[in-house]
Design a protein around this nucleic acid. Sequence first.
DNA 1: GCACCTCTCCCCCGATCGGGGGATAGGTTA
DNA 2: TAACCTATCCCCCGATCGGGGGAGAGGTGC
Lengths: 215, 215
Amino acid sequence: MGLVSADSTRPVKCLVADDHPAMRRAITEILVASGIDVIGEASDGEEALEKIEKRKPDVALVDIKMPRLSGVEVARRVSRSTPETAVLLYSGYGDKAMLLEALDAGARGFVLKEAPLVDLHRAIKTVAEGGTYVDPVLAGALATSEVAMRLPKITQRERDVLRLLADGKSNEEIGKELFISPETVRTHVRKAMAKLEADTRTEAVAKALRQSLIA
Amino acid sequence: MGLVSADSTRPVKCLVADDHPAMRRAITEILVASGIDVIGEASDGEEALEKIEKRKPDVALVDIKMPRLSGVEVARRVSRSTPETAVLLYSGYGDKAMLLEALDAGARGFVLKEAPLVDLHRAIKTVAEGGTYVDPVLAGALATSEVAMRLPKITQRERDVLRLLADGKSNEEIGKELFISPETVRTHVRKAMAKLEADTRTEAVAKALRQSLIA
DNA sequence: GCACCTCTCCCCCGATCGGGGGATAGGTTA
DNA sequence: TAACCTATCCCCCGATCGGGGGAGAGGTGC
């Protein structure tokens, strides 16, 4: 069910960002050869961000290590300013931490440079159609350990409190509703804020909503 | 995600109903090529209804304009007699009235014939999994007219403030960021709260997020 | 048994919020 | 022109929140 959908009757529009000209050229040629429409190139993060926001490609293939603005930062900003563009990050190497940071920043996919070209093509098609693509090598690492760790482990009680918070209730009111002291509610709110790395209860609720921890 | 769900390990079973043999064949071939199991075809509404009730496909892809029994009527009856089958209506054109009538009749989705094939496939998967699918074009029409009319008219400034609020900023911090007085920020927050019928800034942000007034 | 987590409750205290009021300037529209 | 909306700013004041601390009961896991 997607809000994002690519029209399969037209080629996927893609922007390539890499600070190495040779790399850019190589990637672009590969993409064009496989039927992807490369509508722009950028040689650093700032340039990538500007072009993405202006041209709104379906997919932005962005090197994670770039001058002026990292690929992760580009992903973070694009996901806010231009959600219709899926940012696909790539890197020469990658570990779980990097992957998680990338996904957290709003990147829709992560591929390794040594990945087969076929995979690159598939990754682009996948994210263009609204999906998320993680390089199989990295995905393996993830699956075995901490995809679960990644999401803050909000307890049931904390979820209850966040949900009522989102409905505009005060600690006092929530306490009455859950038959606990407002002080306890306060404790739950503080714990949830800490886990979600939020400075205010409002931010905690916003993050919980965005991460679908509450509905 | 619903109560009804198709087993993702087996292909979706689908029935195609259209009074044009060529159209039926074309659609069937497309579906089969994309891994969907077409277990039957029908050339009019009556025949479609009978076959659906007997074979209980996961999804019935039904042309809205057919002899003997319209697609809408098929949807209406199937939703009563065979709720395990999701009726996905399609039509050459569509307007809000038609869409609403279809959904009211129990159709689980509505796609336009000119929709990209990938969308058709996604629509089938979506309704097979218990969801509801509305062609993006029609959904857009809906959004711009009916829905938009009812959404609170938040001003740009209020949106700015809500967005920063969702990031855990205080009035003070937001004021600095927007180059306005914290008192003004407060005013915007209060107005937004009033428009969103929220008792707290937290609820205002939650509602704004849920209504996609901010991201 | 001990470590760890969850849930519960309590204290203090400064910062912030929410509700009420009003005001000025600029833009739109009837 | 008058009515209306938007954006900006200001006041008072009680209610609530956020940060810091502590603590006990009950459960899980090694």
